[in-house]
């Protein structure tokens, strides 16, 4: 698989390590009343779709940036790659 890195262009997926579903960006609020339930779901439960999946890849052998890659889990086709930082900021996160 070739990942279209937003800064470095097409890179072999071998340069990356894989973390999982991009929802892992959205860490729950630890002060919420139901924080325990939220953290259980956040940490352990997955949508695990057959089809389009947004997921976190780390460019370990490259510029060490985190990417959100959109990929089809049935065909392995990669549809897009964004900097995880941009995705998080667009959701209102400060860093």
């Amino acid at each position: 698989m070739i990942i279209p890195h937003p800064l470095l262009g097409p890179r072999d997926s071998q340069e990356f390590t894989y973390l999982g579903d991009a929802h892992l960006i959205e860490r729950p609020d630890w002060q919420a009343a139901d924080a325990q339930d939220q953290f259980h779901d956040y940490l352990y439960l997955r949508d695990n779709p057959a089809g389009v999946h947004r997921e976190l890849w780390f460019h370990e052998q490259g510029d060490r940036s985190w990417l959100v890659v959109t990929r089809n889990t049935v065909t392995h086709e990669i549809l897009s790659a964004e900097l995880a930082r941009d995705v998080a900021r667009a959701k209102g996160r400060s860093k």
């Binding site: 579903d21 352990y44 439960l45 997955r46 949508d47 779709p49 057959a50």
Partner: peptide
Amino acid sequence: GSSGRVMAKAGMRLPIES
């Protein structure tokens, strides 16, 4: 391997990745 796909039809999310 189809656990996630099938249980989603019952509205469940699982502690499983395929």
